[in-house]
Design a protein around this nucleic acid. Structure first.
Length: 488
DNA sequence: TGCTTTTCGACTCCGATAGG
DNA sequence: CCTATCGGAGTCGAAAAGCA
């Protein structure tokens, strides 16, 4: 804002900018030991080196005026953060070449902080977050915004709240991300919405800010059966997407729920920890790896010779140990990158009367862990569900390009990290499917050929050897010429 | 544990195709 | 016609399962 433009805040405050001789804005850097516009020298005992008026009531009035001024100015100009060491129009007046001292700025902002209308963003008090609405008020504004725009039970990105068409002209337009995030978290704690931490699609919006799901009035469905009920309500176009979004919420909800105060510790393994089943223990270890940012695998599973039950098992970090020496010839065309670092991280469990107890635990990795934003790419964290597989096949059969269909899937769930599989997984899945159908096709073609030959040549002979699952393992055939040649 | 076999996941090459 | 991109297939190594 240029210094000679009328300041809308000051107009409402009855003040002028640049400050007139009588204005409170004259409280600029005291060059002679006094604050400009004030008549008395400062008492260093009262407020040392602050540049304040010593008379208490006058000083308090001054602070009050400044507080109101800062709040009004920031609100009008949509300024959420004030950097004390940066140029700030309200604190400096280029016309008279004066600016408020650092101490005075800090004191005014500290006064706002003590009232809960601002917060220091760092210990050094260099940046201050201005809350002209308290976080609770911002949360109420968001709720009203959702109601006004029919976003209840819908999904909206944080960026859509900040700069979407619905938010234009509202207070939410251009809201600071820190404030928005805190207001949303407050609402999440109250069970009014769920935050989907999306991180990576080609869409910058999703990559940076993720998605939130708004379910005002009622909590998001917390059971798969309820999620599935969506199928019955006309969401048949994208059932898979809704299902995936729901399961994501359940995962996030489990770790973020305010009611689960021990959630920070529950997902970390401890010696003596017990699991009902091997599957639960493996899921726990896999989830722990996902949260920490390392891949997991199994070292071994020992089974009882008596009844075949698992007696002990050891789970590892995927970087455990070192790659073995390749005993094959060294004509490899595409040698692979080294993936092992001899990491010692492991969790050993022993079966004690049907309960699996953690008996061995090492948690120190010797390598860099993945960040939460990239952990979803770990092989152990990925999986194509049956419903997703169906969608992939549907897209393939409809002639959609793999890249395009993958992008569509990921956008519908708010980012690739919510999808649970990569584009390469999709490619490999389609390839396996093709190969399976090819196998069936080969056998089918051969049988058809034999049928045709039998009709043409009555001496044509064929025989099949089946395995115990009634699958063809060997085929023998001989036509008239072969029988003649070999005397069969 | 250690070895072998099977399956899965990922890297690479190369031909097909879309787009300029 | 040229170039970039995509997708299919060959290949290799890791992981899992089975067995000793």
């Amino acid at each position: 804002m240029a210094a000679d433009e009328p300041n809308p805040v000051l107009a409402t405050s009855g003040l002028q900018f640049p400050p007139s001789t009588s204005s409170v804005l004259k409280v600029m850097e005291p060059k002679d030991g006094r604050l400009p516009g004030l008549t008395q020298k400062l008492s260093t005992e009262e407020i040392p080196n602050r540049g304040f008026k010593p008379v208490r009531d006058t000083r308090e009035k001054q602070i009050q005026l400044w507080k109101d001024l800062i709040i009004d100015y920031c609100k009008t100009q949509k300024i959420f953060v004030i950097g004390l060491e940066e140029e700030f129009p309200l604190f400096s007046n280029p016309v008279i070449e004066r600016s408020l001292s650092h101490e005075a700025r800090e004191a005014f902002l500290s006064a706002l902080v003590s009232e809960g209308r601002a917060e220091w963003m760092d210990k050094g008090h260099k940046k201050c977050l201005i809350l002209w609405h308290r976080i609770q008020d911002w949360a109420d504004i968001i709720v009203q915004f959702a109601k006004d725009n029919g976003l209840e039970d819908g999904v909206v990105t944080l960026e859509e709240i900040r700069s979407g068409t619905e938010s234009q002209g509202t207070e939410l337009q251009g809201i600071d991300r820190i404030i928005l995030n805190r207001a949303l978290k407050l609402l999440e704690q109250k069970g009014k919405l769920a935050i989907f931490k999306g991180t990576s699609t080609d869409d910058e919006v999703y990559r940076a800010f993720g998605k939130i799901w708004m379910g005002f009035g009622a909590r998001f469905p917390c059971s798969s059966s309820l999620a599935l009920s969506y199928f019955g309500f006309g969401f048949v176009i994208f059932p898979f997407f809704f299902f995936t979004a729901c399961s994501i919420y359940l995962r996030e909800g489990a770790s973020n729920s305010a009611s689960n105060k021990n959630s920070d510790m529950d997902w970390k393994p401890k010696l003596g920890m017990e699991f009902d089943s091997l599957e639960k223990a493996w899921t726990f270890w896999n989830d722990y790896g996902g949260k920490m940012g390392f891949g997991v695998r199994k070292a071994y599973t020992n089974k009882s010779k008596k009844d075949g039950s698992v007696t002990s098992v050891r789970f590892l970090c995927s970087k455990e140990g070192l790659r073995r020496v390749d005993k094959r010839d060294h004509l490899t065309k595409n040698p692979r990158q080294e993936t092992r670092t001899d990491c010692k991280v492991r969790m050993g469990l022993t079966n004690e009367n049907g309960i699996f107890r953690v008996s061995d635990l090492i948690e120190d990795h010797n390598h860099v862990l993945q960040t939460p934003k990239t952990a979803y790419m770990l092989p152990s964290q990925r999986n194509i569900s049956e419903v997703q597989a169906h969608e992939i096949e549907l897209a393939e059969d409809s002639g959609l390009q793999q890249r395009a269909s993958y992008e569509l899937f990921s956008r519908h769930v708010g980012g690739r990290d919510h999808l649970g599989f990569t584009r390469l997984d999709q490619k490999n899945y389609l390839r396996t499917r093709r190969q399976k159908s090819l196998k069936y096709g080969e056998a089918g073609c051969l049988l058809r050929y034999f049928q045709e030959q039998t009709l043409i040549d009555p001496s044509f002979y064929r025989a099949f050897q089946m395995d115990n699952e009634e699958q063809i393992t060997n085929i023998f055939w001989a036509d008239a010429r072969m029988r003649l040649d070999y005397g069969i």
